[in-house]
């Protein structure tokens, strides 16, 4: 009896959480340019699948190119973050040196400063490097992450120290220790960081908006926002079609890697 009520609660909550997605899907199937459907008429009389054709196979908007761009950028950011963050985390967790705490504090401190203001100097820097409107502009500023260093350091700290000692006795140097011993056993944590980096990069909006300018360099999030503004106001059905299209890859990645999400966050909270 108790279980039944738990299931009931869980299911109700799931329905509540899923509502917006389901709504979005329904609206995307209404006729382009039609009014926002009333709640009772949310299911369209006839599904207008051609909205998906309009969005994905648009003559003027290279949506496929947007997907390729997002994919390239996300993949390189993930690879970069895994390498950059894990090597730093390795040094901070396993190599004793003077000023280690200070370096760690520096990483943590920068996490508190956020905001749209730093994007102006960032833009100037990227411009100095002649990277505007290239993949470098989208990839390079994200290949490191203080959050990633923090997450991996916590994980490395939990791995028993004895491994290091044994390896050193066998004559292994620090590189071997990092590359051959620590990284292989850290796959869950690396998976977590990779998953987060992928989603964060894929869904980023403001930086890709300013750092790219030609249509061929737009990412999915920015590129599809074109469908939001058309003459005569918001085209709700088409806009929701674009939202659903942009969402699908994120959902696929999430469902494939869901165990890393669920496990990873636990680590971050460890004392």
């Amino acid at each position: 009896m108790k279980n039944v009520s738990i299931y009931l609660g869980l299911t109700l909550l799931a329905v509540f959480l899923a509502m917006p997605f389901v709504w979005s899907l329904f609206v995307s199937l209404h006729e382009s340019r039609s009014a926002i459907p009333e709640f009772s008429k949310i299911v369209p009389g006839r599904p207008h699948w051609e909205n998906y054709k309009t969005v994905v196979l648009n003559e003027q908007v290279p949506v496929l190119r947007f997907f390729i761009n997002s994919l390239i950028v996300s993949v390189f950011v993930v690879i970069g973050q895994l390498f950059v963050c894990s090597s730093a985390a390795f040094a901070l967790a396993r190599l004793p040196f003077r000023g280690r705490d200070l370096v760690f504090a520096l990483f943590l401190g920068t996490m508190m400063f956020s905001g749209t203001v730093v994007q102006v100097p960032l833009y100037l820097i990227v411009r100095q490097l002649s990277w505007l409107d290239t993949y470098f502009a989208l990839i390079m500023p994200s290949v490191g992450s203080a959050f990633g260093v923090f997450l991996l350091r916590q994980f490395f700290l939990q791995i028993p120290r004895e491994i290091d000692e044994a390896a050193r006795l066998d004559g292994a140097n620090e590189w071997t220790l990092y590359w051959k011993l620590l990284l292989p056993v850290s796959k869950p944590a690396l998976g977590t960081l990779g998953a987060f980096a992928f989603i964060a990069t894929w869904t980023d909006f403001f930086w890709p908006l300013i750092a790219t300018s030609s249509l061929e360099m737009r990412t999915v999030e920015v590129g599809l926002s074109i469908f939001k503004n058309s003459y005569g106001g918001t085209n709700w059905p088409l806009q929701n079609t674009a939202a659903v299209v942009a969402l699908i890859p994120v959902l696929v990645v999430f469902l494939c890697l869901q165990r890393f999400f669920v496990r990873g966050i636990t680590l971050g909270s460890g004392k």
Partner: peptide, 23 residues
């Protein structure tokens, strides 16, 4: 190379940023 910005408000910001950064 046609560089379109999705909405007019962001368009002005983007151009001013281009002006500041001489691009």
């Amino acid at each position: 190379s046609v560089e379109g910005t999705p909405n007019t408000q962001d368009y002005v910001s983007k151009l001013l940023l281009d002006h500041v950064s001489e691009s």
